[in-house]
Design a protein around this nucleic acid. Structure first.
Length: 455
DNA sequence: CTGGGGATGGGGCCC
DNA sequence: TGGGCCCCATCCCCA
């Protein structure tokens, strides 16, 4: 009886143990499930956020492409309006519509602003939001052979004739050669020593830039940026280290111009804006390569009254080039002696260094900085000349009076005061001026309507 | 008219 | 000898 009772108690005990174990196990499982659910919820939240970010980035990328296409179309229309017989169909149009692919078809080079090592078919890495992508930038080219009129040479793939040396494409309707109404006679005009250049033969840029010409330039050009630069701070000369492989060019360094009265923050923005509306540049400098260099991202400070200086320079550079061409000063890209073309405007130069210097007009790079005032210059000679401002040196003295000048050109101008030389004659009223700029100002003030009608 | 700076071309030097 | 590199003169524009 006693043993039976003991056995019964034992069974009850075991039953209770089993029950407790089951409860504990259920509790453990429930806790584990709860943990899993919590983690899953967090995981889902993260995924959702990532998806949102991806959508936002995709939308941003699309907006960039649309904006780029719109800017290019605008400039293309302007170009076509000025050269109605030339039609240019570019591939970006197809890209923006999703008809093309950045990596397909013809490939071309891309030059990131501020660094000159160029190679054909060189991929670039663009930051388009969260990630990076490697793209081959397509040079705008005439893709629609039927659209192009007779005589219009289209850019073609590698191995074809270098359009830089081809004048075939220059058959568009262009204006008559400019009439130099503000010029003195050839014998009088001191500017007539420049080479001849029919402005109508200026390469359009959109069509003329070819892989062949670029290779020629690449082959012959060196990268000054990879050379490093010297400092002559002791003499007030300083040259920045301009190794800018894919980085912000020194010109746009945040520490270069903050508060010095020559902030280039907006300069660059304006410059970029000009590039975005400049078909010559836009064809070679895709906007994202420029946006990657947005100085705002480098904490560039706000601009000042000088902010649009570079903007004007860059915007006016093409105008100035055009004006020089009209004066017969621009050099031809097809000359044997001018076989190094600017990748922006196709203007030819005799050696790679000239191209390097010239292209600073477009890139805004100013590697030479003054140690006294932080002014920056594209050329060492200009910096050297500038430093006379600080030294007070005026080595050019007038033999007729006590005047001294820091620049020889100023002395030359000044001498006309004594000689009375006035070689520039207004064709409208006959008034004579010692300098072309005076004549131009005079005509703008007095004969603006006549000038407009001349054009 | 002066002064400062942008930009180009020529020429000399060096490798 | 030719090309790269650098310096300088020069023209030009603009304030």
């Amino acid at each position: 009886m006693l043993s039976r009772l003991t056995m019964a108690n034992s069974m009850v005990f075991h039953t209770q143990i089993a029950s407790i174990m089951e409860v504990l196990a259920n509790a453990a499982v429930a806790e584990i499930c709860k943990l899993v659910d919590d983690d899953y919820a967090v995981f889902r939240l993260e995924i959702t956020q990532s998806q949102k970010e991806n959508r936002a980035l995709r939308r941003k990328l699309l907006e960039l492409k649309v904006a780029r296409e719109r800017a290019e179309r605008t400039m293309r229309e302007r170009v076509l309006a000025s050269r109605p017989s030339i039609k240019i169909i570019d591939r970006y149009r197809g890209i923006a519509r999703g008809e093309g692919h950045l990596t397909g078809g013809h490939r071309s080079f891309v030059k990131t602003a501020g660094h000159n090592t160029l190679r054909d078919d060189q991929p670039i890495t663009v930051d388009e939001g969260s990630g990076t992508s490697t793209q081959h930038i397509i040079v705008i080219e005439s893709a629609d052979a039927e659209a192009a009129g007779p005589g219009v040479k289209q850019e073609t793939s590698e191995g074809e004739e270098n359009p830089l040396y081809s004048r075939d494409l220059q058959t568009g309707a262009v204006g008559a050669p400019p009439v130099a109404t503000d010029k003195p006679s050839a014998a009088q005009d001191p500017t007539q020593h420049h080479g001849e250049m029919d402005p109508s033969n200026m390469p359009l840029g959109l069509e003329a830039q070819t892989d062949l010409s670029r290779r020629d330039w690449n082959r012959c050009s060196r990268s000054v940026y990879s050379d490093g630069c010297l400092y002559e701070t002791g003499e007030g000369m300083a040259v920045d280290d301009v190794k800018v492989e894919g980085d912000i060019p020194p010109t746009w360094n945040a520490d270069s111009h903050l508060g010095d009265g020559h902030s280039q923050g907006r300069d660059f923005l304006d410059y970029r804006e000009s590039l975005e509306t400049n078909p010559n540049v836009a064809a070679h400098y895709p906007l994202h390569t420029l946006r990657d260099r947005d100085p705002l991202s480098t904490s560039m400070g706000p601009s000042d009254s000088h902010g649009s200086v570079l903007f004007d320079q860059v915007l006016n550079s093409n105008d100035r080039t055009r004006a020089q061409a009209q004066r017969g000063e621009a050099t031809s890209g097809n000359s044997k002696d001018k076989r190094f073309p600017c990748m922006f405007c196709n203007k030819g130069f005799s050696c790679p260094q000239k191209v390097e210097i010239h292209q600073r007009v477009h890139t805004g790079e100013k590697p030479y900085s003054c140690a006294q005032c932080h002014m920056r210059f594209t050329q060492a000679g200009n910096l050297k000349r500038h430093q006379r401002v600080h030294t007070g040196e005026k080595p050019y003295s007038c033999t007729q009076c006590h005047m001294c000048f820091a620049q020889t050109g100023h002395l030359k101008m000044h001498l006309k005061v004594h000689t009375g030389e006035r070689p520039f004659t207004c064709t409208h009223c006959g008034k004579r001026f010692s300098e072309r700029s005076y004549l131009r100002i005079h005509q703008q003030k007095k004969h603006s309507t006549l000038i407009a009608s001349d054009v």
